[in-house]
């Protein structure tokens, strides 16, 4: 039983890592195709993509949209969570359902709906229309995480702050937000990840100023290339570094 467990674990890791390993290995391919046989080690593809202006612009767009839309989603989600967790409002169950609803709807449908609306309203597509879409998908996430983190412990501390004369803004700034900092950071980080990696909304709602996943998509159209491997490997490296840093600085803090 014990041996079987470890065998299963090993097999699972092999399955999970197989495509990533292949991706990274063939990004160093000294040849034109990222498939076996491995023809030798070369950094030429990295050199090529780093010199690719369109790709670098897309990278910058992705980062910009990810941070701005996540920040917006976080602020709105946090305020809404605070309101629904603290103030008894009529129909609060319904309101909570409404705010979480976009989570259960496919990104494709959200994108199509927005596209229809923007077309009818005569709003031309840009990076910011995609950003609006990203706020729509990240708002429920931020709201749900913040709402779930608001336990009785925070509630009592907020009550105490109010009792000691804090205004609502002071309660939010001095007590609620710092106490919820780990949850809010996690929500922001997840949002950035989702937005950064999101394809279909960015694909349908941008026109010229595309994001990285959309740019990678158009690279795929020209067939297999170690250049795509190199981009993928770089994205992987950056994301993993971010995860490791988060893990070390944010979640390892003594409680």
């Amino acid at each position: 039983m014990r041996l079987l467990s470890w065998a299963y674990l090993a097999a699972a890791y092999a399955f999970v890592f197989l495509p990533v390993v292949v991706l990274v290995v063939f990004s160093f391919q000294d040849g034109r195709l990222p498939v076996p046989p491995f023809q030798g080690f070369s950094l030429q593809w990295y050199d090529k993509i780093l010199g690719n202006g369109a790709l670098m612009t897309a990278l910058w767009h992705s980062a910009l949209v990810a941070f701005v839309s996540s920040a917006l989603a976080l602020v709105m989600g946090f305020l809404a969570a605070h309101a629904l967790a603290r103030v008894r409002l009529p129909g609060s169950v319904l309101l909570r359902g409404l705010l979480i609803a976009p989570m259960t709807v496919s990104y494709l449908i959200i994108a199509l709906g927005l596209l229809t609306t923007f077309n009818q309203a005569g709003i031309s597509l840009s990076l910011w229309t995609a950003g609006i879409g990203h706020v729509v998908i990240n708002l429920p996430l931020c709201f749900a995480i913040a709402y779930a983190a608001m336990g009785d412990h925070q509630k009592n501390a907020e009550r105490a702050a109010r009792d000691l004369g804090a205004t609502e803004a002071q309660v939010l700034w001095h007590v609620s937000a710092p106490m919820l900092a780990p949850a809010l950071a996690a929500a922001f980080f997840l949002s950035v990840t989702f937005s950064w990696d999101e394809f279909i909304i960015a694909f349908l709602l941008t026109r010229f100023d595309v994001t990285l996943p959309v740019e990678i998509w158009s690279m795929l159209r020209s067939g297999l290339s170690p250049a795509t491997n190199a981009v993928g490997s770089l994205v992987f490296l950056v994301s993993v570094s971010a995860v490791v840093l988060m893990e070390i600085f944010l979640f390892r803090r003594p409680k």
């Binding site: 999970v16 890592f17 495509p19 990533v20 292949v22 991706l23 063939f26 990222p34 498939v35 990840t193 990696d197 999101e198 394809f199 990285l212 996943p213 990678i216 998509w217 795929l220 297999l224 795509t228 491997n229 981009v231 993928g232 994205v235 992987f236 994301s239 993993v240 995860v243």
Partner: peptide, 16 residues
């Protein structure tokens, strides 16, 4: 860990 590769790239690497 592979969760952190780009979604588009992940499908592409299965192609490889």
């Amino acid at each position: 860990l592979p969760f952190w590769t780009s979604y588009v790239v992940r499908s592409y690497s299965w192609l490889l």
